[in-house]
C-alpha cells in the first residue's frame, strides 16, 4: 500500500472520487449524445407512444413517441448550461460584494451587511416566484430572479473569510510595505477566497438545479417544448401510472447530477479543514 500514501488527499477521499466520476460521466454523456444516439428528440412517432424501456429506446418513449433518453440528455444540456452560467455570475457578484464589504469595513460594510441580512431572511423560492409572477414565467426570468438573490450567501461567506484573512501576518506585512489596495485585493485576498468559494459553489449548484427544475416543474420556469428536466417531469406526471419511466428518467437525472455535485462539494469541504466554520455558516 505504498502507492496510496503518495496520492494526494483528494484522490483518497471516496466522496470526492465518486462525485467526480459521476459528474464526469454525466457531462460526457450529455455532451456526446448526438454521436451516440440515432434519435432526434424532436421527431414524433405516433406508432410508438408510451413504449416502456427497450433496447432501441433505453428509457422508453413519451406521449409523442419521442425517445426519452435523448430528451433527458438534451434537457441536461439546458439545465447544466443555464445553471452553471447563473452560478458563475452569482459567484462573481458575491465575491465582489463580499470583498468590498469585508475589506472596506465601516459604513460600506454596515450597509452591505444589512442588505445581506434582509435578503437572507427571505426564502429565495418566494423571491423567484415574485419575479416569475410579475414578469411572466420563463426560464430566462427565472434565472434572472435566482441570480438576483443567490449571490447573497456568497457575499456573506466571502466577507467572513476576508475579515479573518485580513488580520493574518502576511497581509499585514503587505500593508506595512505599502502595497496598494489593488495588489492586496487581487494578489492576496482573491486567490485565497476563490478556492473555498468554488467548493461552496459546487454544492450551491446542486441546490440551484433543484430550485430551477422544481420551479420549472410547477410551470414557472422552462416552458413545455423545452426539454428542461423539471419541465419533462411535469410533462410526464399525468401518465405516472401508465408510463412511470416518464418521470423517473428526468427525476433520476436530476438526482444523480445533484448527488454528484454534493458528493464532490462535501468531500472537498471535509478535506479542507480550515473551512469548518464557513461550512456551518453556509447551511
Amino acid at each position: 500500500m505504498k502507492l496510496k500514501t503518495h496520492l494526494p488527499d483528494t484522490v483518497r477521499s471516496p466522496m470526492v472520487v465518486s462525485g467526480f466520476l459521476l459528474l464526469l460521466a454525466i457531462i460526457l454523456s450529455i455532451s456526446t449524445f448526438q454521436f451516440t444516439s440515432d434519435y432526434d428528440p424532436a421527431i414524433f412517432d405516433a406508432g410508438n407512444r408510451f413504449n416502456p424501456p427497450s433496447v432501441s429506446n433505453p428509457l422508453g418513449t413519451d406521449r409523442y413517441g419521442r425517445d426519452v433518453l435523448s430528451q433527458v440528455l438534451l434537457g441536461g444540456r439546458i439545465t447544466l448550461a443555464t445553471c452553471s452560467m447563473a452560478m458563475i455570475t452569482v459567484m462573481f457578484i458575491g465575491i465582489t460584494f463580499g470583498i468590498v464589504a469585508g475589506y472596506s469595513g465601516g459604513i460600506v460594510d454596515r450597509i452591505l451587511l444589512s442588505l445581506i441580512d434582509v435578503l437572507l431572511s427571505f426564502p429565495s423560492t418566494v423571491l423567484a416566484i415574485v419575479i416569475a409572477g410579475f414578469f411572466g414565467p420563463s426560464l430566462k426570468n427565472l434565472l434572472i430572479a435566482v441570480t438576483c438573490f443567490w449571490w447573497v450567501r456568497f457575499a456573506q461567506i466571502t466577507r467572513g473569510m476576508v475579515l479573518k484573512i485580513i488580520h493574518e501576518p502576511d497581509i499585514e506585512a503587505a500593508v506595512a510595505i505599502g502595497a496598494s489596495r489593488f495588489t492586496i485585493i487581487f494578489r492576496e485576498l482573491l486567490p485565497r477566497v476563490t478556492g473555498p468559494i468554488i467548493i461552496l459553489a459546487t454544492m450551491e449548484l446542486g441546490k440551484l438545479i433543484l430550485t430551477i427544475s422544481g420551479l420549472s416543474f410547477l410551470g414557472l420556469g422552462a416552458q413545455p417544448p423545452t426539454p428542461e428536466w423539471g419541465a419533462l417531469l411535469s410533462d410526464g406526471r399525468v401518465y405516472l401510472t401508465r408510463a412511470p419511466h416518464l418521470i423517473f428518467a428526468p427525476g433520476i437525472a436530476i438526482f444523480l447530477t445533484v448527488l454528484s455535485l454534493n458528493l464532490l462539494g462535501e468531500g472537498l469541504l471535509s478535506l479542507n479543514k480550515g473551512l469548518k466554520k464557513e461550512e456551518v455558516e453556509l447551511l
Partner: peptide
C-alpha cells in the same frame, strides 16, 4: 452523513409523486 447527502439530492417533486403513487 451519506444518507443526508442522498436525501438532499432528491427532488421533492419526484419523491412526492412517488409517495403519492
Amino acid at each position: 452523513r451519506l444518507i443526508g447527502v442522498l436525501f438532499v439530492a432528491l427532488p421533492s417533486f419526484l419523491l412526492g409523486l412517488i409517495l403519492l403513487e
